[in-house]
Amino acid sequence: MATGGRRGAAAAPLLVAVAALLLGAAGHLYPGEVCPGMDIRNNLTRLHELENCSVIEGHLQILLMFKTRPEDFRDLSFPKLIMITDYLLLFRVYGLESLKDLFPNLTVIRGSRLFFNYALVIFEMVHLKELGLYNLMNITRGSVRIEKNNELCYLATIDWSRILDSVEDNYIVLNKDDNEECGDICPGTAKGKTNCPATVINGQFVERCWTHSHCQKVCPTICKSHGCTAEGLCCHSECLGNCSQPDDPTKCVACRNFYLDGRCVETCPPPYYHFQDWRCVNFSFCQDLHHKCKNSRRQGCHQYVIHNNKCIPECPSGYTMNSSNLLCTPCLGPCPKVCHLLEGEKTIDSVTSAQELRGCTVINGSLIINIRGGNNLAAELEANLGLIEEISGYLKIRRSYALVSLSFFRKLRLIRGETLEIGNYSFYALDNQNLRQLWDWSKHNLTITQGKLFFHYNPKLCLSEIHKMEEVSGTKGRQERNDIALKTNGDQASCENELLKFSYIRTSFDKI
């Protein structure tokens, strides 16, 4: 039985969820670079991206490699990797027998973001014989899940209580170790020597080791999670996991709180800001991140802002960003909400898709409305799209047979046209069989910064309504002859009103 693990408890099935942008060198404390989270699957090609990484700022997932063999891993080693800020997950990587050479110096898994409450997941690794993470000293947050690894031993010899604050939620089941077939031998045991430290858990006094050649490092209890030197002297209180010299914040392997210019500090002093819960960055760093993602459509890219001495992905609820200094300031009234469309555009074809934009005031991208039916549609669209004030790209209304009016965009005031449909149009209306009105132009103002209007096959939309939009939106004169079809717009509506004058002759039985 794995020490510190839980057996036999019912657990939810383990679901495996399925960018080499360097964020800056980590400095003297770390020998390499800070790398983003990685999802490495199918083959070993991307694994080489770990070569210079000291910190993975995010998670590391290595999974679904069915053609790899043990010899493929023999020359692979990433000794610079010290810390993973989120979680480490391995799933069905064939041929991998140990992690001792792959990650010989991995010391800390912070667990800032977890995989279903777990910071370390080893699942269905069919050839893994031992973990071998002999320098792993601290899992700051989260638990361990090690399950269905039929060859995995050296679990009962690990004292997880020396690595985690609590072992109650560890789930370590259905491994070879369960069948008591392992016969784990710690260093020196074969020669009758006791080389590794022994600890007591559940009444068992057991030597602690990761492999037959690597003991588990056990520091004096007084050192807590700070770690200790090879001689057993406690590291500085700002260290986490390990250090090369005692009581020196510049000799830590990793930091308990924050890293700044080669030393570990309790908090980031001005003019620095907390970033990702582990390091200090200056304003320029946060500003660069903001600008890199301002026009990016890459998933996970955030326009970072500053709030409460932190550089964070977005302002919290009730705050909006001051564009001059990136500071989050309290909103006066309802907060603006910028919604970034991942692929640059979004099609609204149902109430469900409209709900995804609920509360958005600025759309960074283009909207395509293609709704053919739905219950209580006008009210639903207004509830979900009615706060949109600005669209950076274009607005396209296409084959939306259920629409009679666009009044559900009740606050839309600006279409920038930074991206144009077919390279020309910022407003595009095609084949809307029941569209009769755009907006009530006596109450609604709309500016279209650039781009043209396109109207074709809107049989109940009168040309007068379209011409009014040209005047109000500032697009009059931009359109070419064929942009607004004269014969297919309003051709099934009563669009022309003329005053009919009647004269009559009164007659009676005795007068003409």
Rank of each mutant, 00 (worst) to 15 (best):
H28I: 05
P31G: 15
G32R: 13
E33P: 13
E33M: 14
E33K: 08
G37T: 05
D39C: 15
N42A: 09
N42Y: 12
L44Y: 09
L44K: 07
T45W: 14
H48G: 01
E49H: 04
E51I: 10
G58S: 00
Q61I: 04
I62E: 01
L64P: 05
L64M: 11
M65K: 03
M65V: 05
F66N: 02
D75Q: 09
D75I: 10
S77Q: 13
P79S: 06
M83W: 02
M83F: 11
M83L: 12
I84E: 00
I84S: 00
T85G: 02
D86I: 01
D86G: 04
L88V: 07
F91R: 04
F91E: 02
Y94Q: 15
Y94N: 08
L99S: 01
K100V: 10
L102V: 14
L102G: 02
P104Y: 01
P104A: 01
P104D: 00
L106K: 00
V108L: 13
I109A: 00
R110Q: 12
S112K: 11
S112P: 00
L114S: 04
N117K: 04
A119F: 01
L120H: 01
E124I: 00
M125G: 04
L131P: 02
L136F: 05
N138G: 09
T140P: 07
S143V: 07
S143A: 12
R145M: 08
K148G: 04
E151R: 10
E151F: 05
E151C: 06
L155T: 11
A156S: 10
T157M: 04
I158P: 09
W160N: 01
W160G: 01
L164E: 15
D165T: 08
E168V: 08
N170M: 09
N170W: 03
V173P: 09
V173G: 02
D177C: 08
D177G: 15
D178F: 09
D178W: 07
E180Y: 08
E180I: 03
E180W: 07
C182A: 10
G183V: 07
G183W: 03
G183C: 09
P187D: 10
G188P: 09
G192C: 13
K193V: 03
N195A: 12
P197G: 08
A198R: 10
V200L: 04
I201P: 14
Q204W: 02
F205N: 15
F205T: 14
R208E: 08
W210Y: 14
H212M: 05
C215H: 00
K217T: 15
K217L: 12
V218T: 07
I222A: 12
C223F: 03
S225A: 10
H226D: 10
H226F: 15
C228V: 09
C228P: 02
A230H: 10
G232Q: 05
L233N: 13
H236Q: 02
E238A: 13
C239P: 00
C239Q: 01
G241H: 04
D248F: 02
P249I: 01
P249A: 06
K251V: 10
C255W: 00
R256E: 05
F258Y: 11
F258S: 05
L260V: 09
L260F: 07
G262Y: 02
V265Y: 00
P271N: 02
Y272W: 11
D277T: 05
D277L: 05
F285M: 07
F285H: 05
Q287F: 15
Q287P: 03
D288S: 13
L289S: 10
L289I: 15
H290Q: 14
H291T: 01
C293A: 04
S296I: 05
R298S: 12
G300S: 10
G300N: 05
C301F: 07
Y304R: 03
I306A: 02
N308D: 05
N308Q: 13
N309V: 03
C311S: 00
P313A: 06
C315W: 01
C315E: 00
G318R: 03
Y319F: 12
N325K: 03
L326S: 04
C328D: 00
P330S: 09
P330T: 13
C331L: 05
P334D: 04
P334G: 06
